[in-house]
Design a protein around this nucleic acid. Structure first.
Length: 233
DNA sequence: GCATTAAATAGAA
DNA sequence: TTCTATTTAATGC
């Protein structure tokens, strides 16, 4: 059995940041910690949503399965956020599959505790709505991009988004996307093909905007990516 | 401007 | 080796 979880693990995370030590303790004592290998499913689309989770460490790749059986990447989620919160949107099954994009550590609670958390813990509900709101806002941006922007703009915006949300500073001043991501993953999220993404990344690398190895991308000139995204400047 | 197709190369298991 | 990721060129809408 694991040691007691330390309160500092979640005390500063938005859903719990307004709570006192006794409440944090109470919440942790009901949590089941789990480690997920890279590529493992944390939960799957269509399954009974019997738990909700907090992503403590690692990154999650969210997938939808199409009618023809193909999986497409919808988004990536950085650590510190709640995931699998079907209860928050009135669902009893998970709307999508969550894979560990890198090794992940999660805390899970039984779904029956959802209404308890919402009513009992100050700020839990409002922070959850805020998180869902931000995801919706990002989705709106992406739909607008799909309708109005060229492929290069969309891929630039996507890479920039991942660098902002999940970037780690690397020596030399670049920002590395902190989880393994393929050209095909980016193609899914931008409505392009892996060939187009490959061609763009190669061109950007020649221009000194990014450096990429297989499954790893470092953004070396973020400001130039902003220009390429066609969002500002 | 991009997708599609195809073929070659290279890294990882 | 076999599987997966990536690159590059040719072709077409």
């Amino acid at each position: 059995m694991l040691r007691k979880l330390d309160e500092s693990l979640i005390a500063d995370l938005p859903p719990f940041s307004r709570l006192g030590r006794p409440e944090i303790r109470e919440i942790l004592d009901q949590a089941a910690p789990r480690r997920h290998e890279e590529g493992a499913a944390i939960f799957r689309e269509g399954e009974e949503a019997d738990r909700f989770h907090l992503l403590l460490d690692g990154h999650v790749r969210v997938l939808r399965t199409t009618a023809s059986g193909e999986q497409v990447v919808l988004r990536h989620i950085p650590p510190g956020q709640l995931i699998g919160i079907a209860q928050a949107i009135g669902r009893t099954t998970y709307p999508a599959t969550a894979l560990a994009a890198s090794e992940c550590l999660t805390l899970g609670w039984p779904a029956r505790l959802w209404p308890v958390f919402v009513s009992r813990y100050e700020g839990f509900a409002s922070e959850t709505w805020a998180t869902l709101g931000r995801r919706l806002e990002e989705l709106n941006d992406r739909v607008a991009e799909l309708a109005t922007k060229a492929a290069e703009n969309r891929v630039a915006a996507c890479v920039l988004r991942m660098a902002n949300q999940s970037g780690r500073k690397v020596e030399g001043g670049g920002i590395e996307i902190a989880f393994p991501v393929t050209r095909a993953n980016i193609a899914d999220m931008t409505g392009t093909t892996l060939h187009t993404v490959s061609r763009l990344l190669s061109a950007w690398e020649k221009d000194g905007i990014v450096e990429s190895r297989r499954r790893h991308i470092v953004v070396t000139a973020p400001h130039r990516l902003v220009l390429l995204s066609g969002t500002a400047g």
